[in-house]
Simulated assay, not measured.
Amino acid sequence: MNSIEFNAKTYFDAIYARPVILEAKKLTQSFKHGKTERTILNQLDLKIHKREFICVIGPSGCGKSTFSRIVAGLDPYSSGELLVDGQAIEGPSPERGMVFQGYTLFPWKTVKENVMFGPLMKGASNASAESSAREWIDIIGLEKYQDQYPHQLSGGMKQRVAIARALVNEPKILLMDEPFGALDPHTRQKMQKHLMDLWQNIDITIIFVTHDMDEAILLADRIVALKANPGEIKEIIEVDLPRPRNPELMLTPEFKRLRERVDFLVHAQEDELDPALENLPKIPRMTQVSTHK
């Protein structure tokens, strides 16, 4: 790694000089069930700047997906503030696109029709929606498949269509909740590269939820590490690695240093998260087949 070519301080100073596009102030979400109340997110304070790539990580139950759904306007929050360009989020909006892990395409629509759906819902003419859809289908490299249906596509293709369907609405923020979690490692790696290429060439801020620590380090400008019970920001890590990044970077001492730090943040409290795992019962013998020779 050539440190002369990449100056982390200069890189992050430039990011922090950009306008704040998303701000959470004491953001809290709690659920009541009878007389009990469970806090999922507690007093989150976070500023995300325009065109940042943010990854959100943490142990299961820390509220990663809840946070992304609240930003998308799909779930309410109990207290605090959540602002996009200084305006409170009050529900879903085309300015905040969402891509889930599951393939959420309409199975009865073709690739082109799926991508056209958003513009049509915003009132675009059929010709305008088709033109926009074709442009994004070309960008994601699926022009040969535009008339096929989701069941005819591979997992990676489906997620590219889902990304195009979100981006065709020209959102300010793209929210991605474990979008590559169901893909095989080779396809996942290709999708990560494709996503980075998209982000570097369009005016978009990305908030990416993942369990994969290597993925977070490869993609993010900053990593927001959450702790659970309740979900709070444990640490925000600046990924001081040069771009563009590739899998070979994972072999460097700099990457391994970050990996160790992220691993500690995610797993340090795992024993506290599920006390039911502490005293597991002894399994009774239910077979005559021995594991010993």
Rank of each mutant, 00 (worst) to 15 (best):
I4S: 15
F6Q: 07
K9R: 13
F12G: 10
A14C: 12
I15M: 12
A17I: 07
I21W: 00
A24T: 08
A24H: 01
L27A: 09
S30M: 03
R38I: 15
I40S: 03
I40Q: 00
L41C: 04
L46D: 05
R51I: 08
E52P: 08
F53D: 04
V56H: 05
G58L: 07
C62Y: 02
K64P: 05
T66S: 08
T66D: 03
R69V: 01
R69G: 07
R69H: 07
V71K: 00
V71H: 00
V71T: 10
G73P: 07
Y77D: 02
L82S: 08
L82E: 04
V84G: 03
D85S: 12
E90R: 14
P92D: 04
P94S: 08
V99A: 05
Y103S: 13
F106W: 12
W108N: 13
W108G: 08
K109L: 15
K112G: 12
K112Y: 06
M116N: 09
P119D: 06
K122V: 09
S125W: 07
N126E: 14
A127Y: 02
E130S: 14
E130N: 09
E135V: 10
E135L: 13
W136N: 06
I139K: 14
L142K: 01
E143P: 05
Q146Y: 12
P150Y: 10
P150M: 10
P150E: 09
Q152H: 13
S154G: 08
G156Y: 02
G156C: 04
K158V: 06
I163L: 02
A166F: 06
L167N: 06
E170L: 08
I173D: 01
L175Y: 05
M176C: 07
M176Q: 00
D177A: 03
E178V: 03
G181Y: 04
L183E: 09
K193M: 14
K193H: 14
L195V: 09
L195Y: 02
W199N: 00
W199L: 05
T210N: 03
H211W: 14
D214R: 04
E215D: 06
E215P: 01
L218K: 09
V224H: 03
V224Y: 01
P230E: 00
E235T: 03
E235P: 09
D240R: 15
D240S: 13
P242N: 04
R245L: 05
R245C: 11
N246S: 13
T252N: 08
K256C: 04
L258W: 00
E260V: 10
V262H: 09
V262S: 01
D263L: 13
F264V: 13
L265R: 05
L265H: 09
H267N: 15
A268L: 07
Q269F: 09
Q269E: 14
E270L: 13
E270V: 11
E270C: 05
L273C: 07
D274A: 11
P275F: 03
L277P: 04
L277D: 11
P281E: 11
K282E: 15
K282L: 12
P284L: 01
T287A: 10
T287E: 02
Q288H: 12
V289E: 14
